[in-house]
Amino acid sequence: MEKVMRLCSGKGVVIFSNSSCCMCYTVKILFNELGVEPLVYMIDQFPEGREMEMALLRMGCSSAVPAVFINGKLIGSTNEVMSLHLSGSLVQMLKPYQI
Rank of each mutant, 00 (worst) to 15 (best):
G72I: 05
G60E: 14
V4P: 01
G72P: 10
L34R: 01
S87L: 11
G49K: 04
S77N: 09
M1W: 13
K11T: 09
V36G: 01
C21E: 14
P47K: 15
I29A: 10
C24Q: 13
C22N: 06
L39K: 11
L84N: 00
V81A: 08
V65I: 13
D44Y: 07
G76M: 09
Y97Q: 09
V36D: 03
S87V: 03
I75H: 01
T26L: 05
Q92F: 00
I15Y: 03
G88A: 15
L30C: 08
L30E: 03
K73C: 10
S89P: 01
D44T: 08
S89V: 04
S62G: 01
S87G: 08
L84T: 01
M82H: 05
S20P: 01
Q98T: 13
V40G: 03
I43P: 01
I43W: 01
L7Y: 09
M5N: 13
N71L: 13
N32L: 11
L84Q: 11
M5K: 14
S62A: 12
P96Y: 11
Y41L: 02
E2L: 11
I43F: 02
A55K: 00
G10T: 07
A55W: 11
L57K: 02
Y25N: 07
P38E: 05
N32D: 14
S77W: 04
S9Y: 12
M1K: 12
F69P: 00
F16A: 11
N32M: 12
L86M: 07
L84A: 00
Y25E: 05
L74I: 00
Y41A: 01
E48M: 09
M23H: 11
M23T: 12
C22D: 03
L86D: 07
A64S: 15
L30Y: 01
K3P: 10
G72S: 02
R58Y: 06
S63A: 14
K3S: 12
Q45A: 12
Q98E: 11
R6S: 15
L74E: 00
V40P: 03
P96F: 02
E33T: 08
V36C: 00
L86C: 02
G12V: 07
H85W: 13
Y97P: 02
M82D: 01
F46I: 03
L57M: 03
V14M: 03
M1F: 11
C24N: 09
E2P: 07
L94F: 14
N18E: 14
S62T: 10
K95M: 15
S9R: 15
S62C: 04
E33F: 10
A64Q: 06
M59W: 00
F16D: 05
L86N: 12
T26D: 07
K73M: 10
V91F: 02
